[in-house]
Design a protein around this nucleic acid. Sequence first.
DNA 1: TGTTAATATACGCTCTGGCGTAAAAGGAAT
DNA 2: ATTCCTTTTACGCCAGAGCGTATATTAACA
Lengths: 82, 82
Amino acid sequence: MTTIARTPAQIGNALRRVRKDKGLTQKDVSERTNLRIATISSLENGDAGTQIRTILAVMMVLQLEFRVAERGSDQPSLEDIF
Amino acid sequence: MTTIARTPAQIGNALRRVRKDKGLTQKDVSERTNLRIATISSLENGDAGTQIRTILAVMMVLQLEFRVAERGSDQPSLEDIF
DNA sequence: TGTTAATATACGCTCTGGCGTAAAAGGAAT
DNA sequence: ATTCCTTTTACGCCAGAGCGTATATTAACA
């Protein structure tokens, strides 16, 4: 699954969804990143001031990565083709 | 084009490349985002402390978006299929 | 090689992110 | 309802991001 994220809120929502899908709590992520639970909460709630190092640390733990893509270039999925 | 960005440096490089491809200077981006040139420079050089609002503002101007993707899920390109 | 554009750095300032810590509020069960 | 887990919020603190401004440094290129 790949989700578009153009706003801090969209990033936060995406990370929260993945975290829950993986059965992890904010505390789990907190421990594995050495970030405060409050920081994870803030990020998931779309705080625009969150530093990129913080987001990337959480994404690392969730085994996620960013892809920088041109806006509007729709991502063709295999389902769209076959 | 879609580039993977797992580190602040990779994000900075991707944004710099796209900016130049579009024939824009840091000053151009600076004016359109109301961010200082110094901030753009810092971001492009991979400052891990850059805030997500700053990165997203620049990406907006460059008509870029993030995609949150599972690490290791290779992005199949049409060329790979046909 | 000298001029101009572009990028990188620096200084003082204000604001706030994340820290440590703690408490409050929500949620999901029995 | 109460217990337990999870998430949110709060407070004082320090470090640093981005601001305004200005000056280096580097890059192009006549």
